[in-house]
Design a binder for these strands. Structure first.
Lengths: 214, 214
DNA sequence: CGAGCGATTGAAAAGACTCAACCACCGTGG
DNA sequence: CCACGGTGGTTGAGTCTTTTCAATCGCTCG
């Protein structure tokens, strides 16, 4: 886990953390927090993947991010001192630990390095989201799918991408049917191979090319 | 100027700020910073509007935000310690002041209240962008236009919205022609009235309704 | 073994985009 | 003073992508 944020908050070396953190096992598709809920602390992902999403006006999910082992989720809402504006749900069996707001803020106030990491993290994500917005606005669904596959391949690291078609469509920002049709095209073009819902990338170079407009 | 960030950085009460800040007058459509450039400080907007945008693969601008008097721009890149990943350009004649990186960081390190405001600001914007992404992914252009008009009406406060059609299209995330056609529809529906490029909202209630699907 | 959900396919309709042309305004220079 | 060129705004028509709705398939789980 190279993520310094994680180590600075949940790592064994953080003084006192063991008395304060609680460990939770969660099954697949369990909510971690919900839009509108009151934040009481942060969650560190020890194992499993977590989707971060908003619910659009029509009730459709838009997945903003897929977080993996070593990431911290839910700290943004603590700073803005408002109810959650996004929701988080496990995608697999997961193991999270919870660190209370009080303990977290105490860390932040006393540890400049942690503060700097957090500022950096927030700023970087802000720029990432600017790119995300641009992709949504300007790229075709086909291009966005390619982009998403590259992103998810990284999140799933060695393993195959393992999301429901609905979740994948909600990440790409399209209808499930459209997603399936495009996956089929990618399959016939030998860019990917599917094993039930799992997806393996065969030709990352071409996929990357597609993701950057043609 | 109610924005505490601005007052804590550029306000007359900040000790030493007058020796460090430099004031700049900028004409319409002048670049403030550019994607890829190296950040050397932050800019406080005293007067005028500023667009923050990225350039997509095809060279098309996507406007992410329109900042107004009292806002600070360009501080995110300082924290992430990377080149700018967005660009900023004036939309009107503007008056900005520049505060150097060194002075800014000194303020941040010594002023907890400022730090808290910045964290809050970053976190809030992050959530705003999640909503922006969702809007892009799920709303029709018509709905996004309505949403954008409401947003811009607030930015332009008492005045009428005053953007080129291209800029407006790049904010909504559509082609200029589509934007113009929809504006026309809004005009025939008596939702807005235009005076050359300026736009006045006549029926905010209905526009708001359109912006939230339907 | 049947229910039910997720995945897939088909066909039609709608929304947006592209391209091309045209208009209107404005400042410039002959 | 007026023709000229340029830029930004507007309109039209055709095309293509994407969505929607409906139906079917196939598998898993009780």
């Amino acid at each position: 886990m190279k993520n310094s944020l994680f180590n600075n908050i949940c790592g064994a070396s953080v003084p006192g953390v063991n008395e304060f953190k609680t460990s939770n096992y969660l099954k697949k598709n369990q909510p971690i927090f919900r839009e509108g809920g009151i934040p009481r602390g942060v969650f560190c992902i020890n194992k499993g993947k977590v989707k971060i999403f908003t619910i659009g006006e029509e009730g459709k999910e838009q997945i903003i991010h897929v977080a993996k082992e070593g990431e911290i989720v839910g700290f943004r809402a603590l700073f803005s001192d408002e109810p959650y504006r996004v929701s988080a749900t496990t995608l697999d069996e997961s193991n999270l630990c919870f660190v209370s707001k009080e303990f977290f803020f105490n860390l932040v106030d006393t540890n400049k390095a942690l503060r700097d990491s957090i500022m950096k993290e927030l700023s970087t994500e802000l720029a990432d989201r600017a790119v995300f917005i641009t992709n949504m606005a300007q790229k075709s669904v086909r291009e966005r799918l390619a982009f998403s596959l590259i992103f998810l391949d990284d999140v799933y690291d060695g393993e195959m991408i393992n999301l429901s078609r609905d979740d994948l469509a909600n990440f790409v920002g399209t209808a499930t049917e459209t997603l399936i049709r495009l996956l089929k095209e990618f399959k016939t073009d030998a860019l990917i191979k599917t094993y039930a819902r799992k997806i393996k990338l065969l030709d990352k170079v071409t996929i990357l090319k597609i993701s950057s407009s043609q």
